[in-house]
């Protein structure tokens, strides 16, 4: 077990719990991995599903990510951030890779449907209510443009160039809005 307060920006016990599990996983402990799975699979799958949308493909990506977490746990460095962040970052990156390698036609179609469907239709019933409420509250503190830019980039898996095209705004403005927005979200969510 790591001493309390080690590492910056770890707000609650849950994060540290996961850090401890991940360091056991790094030593090849399969039961620790199963416990890690139980805690992280929901948030991770939900995020992938949000970006990739197709359930069968999302499941494939989720499986890849989880096996990668096992394989690379030995390289996880708690000094650089929490285990949760590490896993979610891998998941997001893989989901985005999957979406970007899709054909241009499918991509176009997906983009249109993304703009037409309310963003929370599918997952609505099962989302983690507390975290969702907090994120929602923090999102409300952003300008419309900041909020849309971040949502399209993060949940939509779009590059900032695509986001600029979708919103009809210059590249320079989009880069700035994503950054300003994230800084405001960070301060609102109490990430240090």
């Amino acid at each position: 077990m790591r001493p309390a307060g080690a590492g910056p920006g770890l707000p609650a016990g849950r994060d540290r719990d996961l850090d401890g599990l991940l360091s056991r996983v790094a030593r090849g402990d399969e039961s620790a991995f199963a416990a890690l799975y139980d805690q992280i699979s929901g948030p991770m799958y939900g995020l992938i599903r949000r970006v990739v949308r197709d359930p069968a493909q999302s499941e494939e990506v989720a499986q890849e990510v989880l096996v990668e977490v096992w394989r690379a746990a030995t390289r996880f460095d708690p000094a650089k951030g929490s285990a949760v962040t590490w896993v979610m970052t891998i998941a997001h990156r893989r989901a985005v890779d999957r979406v970007r390698s899709a054909t241009a036609a499918v991509e176009r179609e997906r983009r249109t449907s993304l703009l037409l469907t309310p963003t929370d239709e599918v997952a609505d019933a099962v989302e983690a209510a507390l975290e969702r409420e907090r994120v929602r509250r923090c999102l409300e503190g952003l300008t419309d443009l900041q909020r849309e830019s971040i949502t399209l980039a993060y949940y939509g898996g779009h590059s900032y160039r695509e986001v600029a095209g979708l919103l009809g705004i210059t590249l320079g403005t989009i880069k700035t809005r994503i950054r300003d927005g994230l800084i405001r979200l960070r301060d609102c969510m109490g990430v240090t």
Binding site: G9, Y45, E59, A62, A128, V191, T192
Partner: peptide, 22 residues
């Protein structure tokens, strides 16, 4: 800091993973 923020943002989309995946 932003990566950590994004990860928390990701948590809000949480939904149960498909049975069988485990």
């Amino acid at each position: 800091g932003m990566t950590e923020t994004a990860a928390r943002f990701g948590f809000a989309a949480s939904q149960p993973a498909p049975p069988g995946l485990r």
